[in-house]
Write a protein that binds this DNA or RNA. Structure first.
Length: 711
RNA sequence: GGGCGUUUAGCUCAGUGGUAGAGCGUUUCGUUGACAUCGAAAAGGUCGGAGGUCCGAUCCCUCCAACGCCCACCA
């Protein structure tokens, strides 16, 4: 008989060890019934590799609960089941975390040599990775540790570079000088989706430009102007189109051509726009359309967000200071016509530090995305890949259809180095090893591109790389994987890229189902964040109430795609449920008598009804799990165990359990035992620890592990 | 400017074309061998609003409102 009350702390670690030692996390060790000539059915999930730069939070606990549920269910169904764990170096994210750490120590990364910084960050990451792995164990993740991968494993690095080289060969990767999102704080460019847009109130200055007036929020960029644009249909400026006008820009005079472009909205401002191709994405595109008419980008703001040498007397000033000063000078000269002080517009900011991003003209590597997007859209359209819930397919299509080329260069050191080399002569060579000499100029002054890949470029290849593409047995056995389970917030960052790169590289879809979970919120529906102080540590509460209670409360809290709401109250509620099951089991077993073994039960009508009902519940739960309705399955098993089994069936069995007649006693016991046994199986994927612990105490023959009992 | 989601009991959320559900909270009773981390019972909802389809709508359709989110190059 087991102790009272149930104490998860005393049980969970031991159970995990029992599982891990059994070897059954590894699909190769599973007792798969092999029918002749038939390949065993497989089921595989590649774990979204957590960023190895901190501890696990509730979002991680959620994916663990959901994925482990699917994995345990499929394993019990008898499939050759693989859950492949991993960890992500998380390039820019980790760089940001590490920058903060350095800042606390009074250091900064720009003073540390590349090699030294990389070494320190690797050490930091590997130690976080170890912590994370143990946390995954604490939460009961039944993943195959023997296959664990890290995004900076040598083979992953090498194969990620192969993909880049291959894309380059096929013309799908190019090096282009384009305006990119530049973060002044982090000193790197970012992709379009690594930006947030915030509403900002600014002044809109109306500045006299020779014969006309332009409206701008950025007077400090006037030195970089190369044209003035108007709408071709705008009658006001018809006579000026094609002419050159002379503009006083404080530090001198500029001759600017007036050009006609449809982009210009005649109704906005004065209908005339100053064109600054080096510092505005729209202006850059205007220039692209008028390349042979006007001068190209002239950079007047540098990488630190300060005025460059081209701003002459304003050189070195911060943007805001320069703006103020320039406006003053313009005012003195009578060139400011008016100022609209409450102009609201959206500006792009760094999604990490919220600093305004400076558009900068930089040579970067871009992935030509359209040829990759088309087959990805097709895969979802045709139903080869299905989204759960389905509504995200629409979101996916919308984004994929409007997608722009992907900047994959990052000016940080933490990541996979881009395999490209620059010769003094300007030649660019794409290959892994350093070229001995340049094919063009025969020179040997060749340097490697200092940049690394956007971290999503490697994680976008995760399903097939983690499985050992292209030649491994695992890749052949488990690819395409069955389910990709992750948060909808990284639909574009990750899921879309995995589909695109997966199809490109392997010719196959990377997964059949995309299950998207929501964002975990606190009891006031607030996002959990450190600054709000409302973060609940999943490991902390798991330590108090048990990992089972944490997992169950996460699963019951939301349907796919919805945000689960978590509170300690709720977790406590499921801890009570664990206690209930514990006591149910104690009660069932306390009425056990070894003499029952030989007795043939005589079932009553009620017994038969209850056993039949059990089958119905079994079927319903199976169906709901198959249909990804985990929260419904969880509610049902909860309700059945507590309010049908305990409240009714067990209560009603009490008189018979105390009967003088051993057949009556044995029958009552056997019915209760059968229901308990099936309930434990049904509950196992949801609450694996306590169910396994009880199973280990059951008086049954050929006991193995509940984990591999037949569903 | 497009698009999406949510709106059901005091709170947080499930759910269904045919007498409304759970957890927590509240109230009452119960501690005689599974369980007080509990049991029994109770109160509490015109299922956001207005139309429509239907024998019948909380559920399907249309419109509206509130809240939340995503996407978008008007200086």
């Amino acid at each position: 008989m087991f102790n009272k009350p149930y104490n998860p702390k005393e049980v969970e670690d031991g159970i995990y060890e029992l599982w891990e030692k059994s070897g059954f996390f590894n699909p190769d060790n599973l007792p798969i019934s092999k029918t002749k000539n038939l390949k065993p059915k497989t089921f595989s999930i590649i774990m979204p590799p957590p960023n190895a730069n901190g501890s696990l939070h509730f979002g991680h606990a959620l994916f663990i609960a959901l994925e482990d549920l699917m994995i345990r269910y499929q394993r019990m169904r008898g499939k050759k089941t693989l859950w492949l764990p991993g960890a992500d170096h998380a390039g820019f994210e980790t760089q940001v975390v590490f920058d903060k750490k350095l800042e606390k120590e009074g250091r900064n990364r720009f003073q540390i040599s590349r090699d030294e910084l990389y070494r320190e960050m690797m050490e930091f990451t590997l130690s976080n990775k170890k912590v994370m792995e143990n946390q995954l164990r604490k939460l009961g993740a039944s993943c195959d540790w023997s296959r664990e991968k890290f995004t900076l494993d040598p083979d992953i690095i090498s194969k990620t570079q192969d993909t880049f080289i291959d894309l380059h060969k096929k013309g799908l990767v190019y090096r282009g000088e384009r305006l990119v999102n530049w973060c002044i704080k982090h000193q790197t460019s970012l992709s379009d989706i690594e930006t947030d847009s915030v509403e900002k109130k600014d002044s809109l200055y109306y500045i006299k430009y020779g014969p006309l007036t332009v409206a701008t929020v950025r007077p400090e960029t006037i030195f970089g102007d190369t044209a003035v644009a108007v709408n071709p249909k705008d009658k006001r400026y018809k006579n000026l189109i094609g002419k050159e006008i002379e503009v006083d820009v404080v530090i001198g005079k500029l001759k600017l051509k007036v050009i006609a472009d449809d982009f210009v909205d005649p109704k906005f401002g004065t209908g005339a726009v100053k064109v600054t191709p080096a510092h505005d994405p729209n202006d850059f595109e205007i220039w692209q359309r008028h390349k042979n008419e006007i001068e190209g980008p002239r950079e007047v703001i540098n990488q630190f967000g300060k005025m460059s040498v081209k701003a002459k007397e304003f050189e070195g000033l911060k943007i805001s200071e320069a703006r103020k000063l320039i406006v003053e000078k313009l005012k003195e000269k009578g060139l400011i016509e008016k100022i609209d002080e409450s102009y609201n517009h959206a500006v792009a900011v760094c999604y990490k530090c919220q600093n305004i991003l400076e558009p900068r003209l930089l040579p970067q590597w871009f992935v030509k995305i359209e040829p990759l997007a088309k087959p990805a859209i097709q895969a979802v359209k045709s139903g080869k890949i299905k989204f759960v819930p389905k509504r995200f397919e629409k979101v996916f299509f919308h984004w994929m259809k409007n997608i722009r080329d992907w900047n994959i260069s990052r000016q940080i050191i933490w990541g996979i180095r881009i395999p490209a080399w620059f010769c003094e002569c300007g030649e660019i060579i794409v290959q892994k090893e350093k070229p001995k000499k340049c094919a063009k100029c025969s020179g040997n002054k060749i340097k490697q591109d200092p940049d690394v890949f956007d971290t999503w470029f490697s994680s976008g290849q995760w399903p097939y790389l983690a499985l050992g593409y292209p030649n491994s047995k695992d890749y052949k056995t488990f690819y395409p994987t069955d389910v990709m389970e992750t948060g909808w917030d990284i639909l574009f960052f990750w899921v879309a890229r995995m589909i695109m790169l997966g199809i490109y590289r392997t010719g196959k879809i990377p997964f059949r189902y995309v299950y998207l979970h929501g964002l975990v919120r606190d009891k006031d529906r607030q996002k959990m964040s450190k600054s709000k102080g409302n973060v609940i540590d999943p490991l902390g509460v798991a330590g108090i109430y048990g990992a089972d209670a944490v997992r169950m409360s996460l699963i019951t809290s939301a349907a796919a795609g919805n945000d689960p709401v978590i509170s300690e109250d709720k977790i406590r509620g499921y801890r009570n449920f664990a206690t209930k099951i514990w006591n149910i089991s104690r009660f069932v077993l306390m009425n056990y008598d070894s003499k029952f073994e030989k007795i043939k039960p005589k079932f009553t009508k009620e017994d038969r009804k209850n056993l039949k009902n059990l089958k119905t519940i079994h079927k319903k739960i199976t169906k709901d799990i198959e249909n990804f309705k985990f929260h419904i399955a969880a509610h049902n098993i909860y309700h059945y165990i507590w309010h049908t089994f305990a409240d009714k069936i067990l209560e009603n069995s009490k008189p018979r359990l105390r009967s003088e007649n051993i057949i009556e006693r044995a029958t009552a016991f056997k019915v209760n035992f059968e229901i308990l046994f099936v309930s434990l199986k049904l509950l196992h994927p949801f609450m694996p620890f306590i169910t396994e612990e009880i199973y280990q105490n059951l008086p049954i023959k050929n006991k193995k592990l509940l984990m591999i009992e037949k569903w």
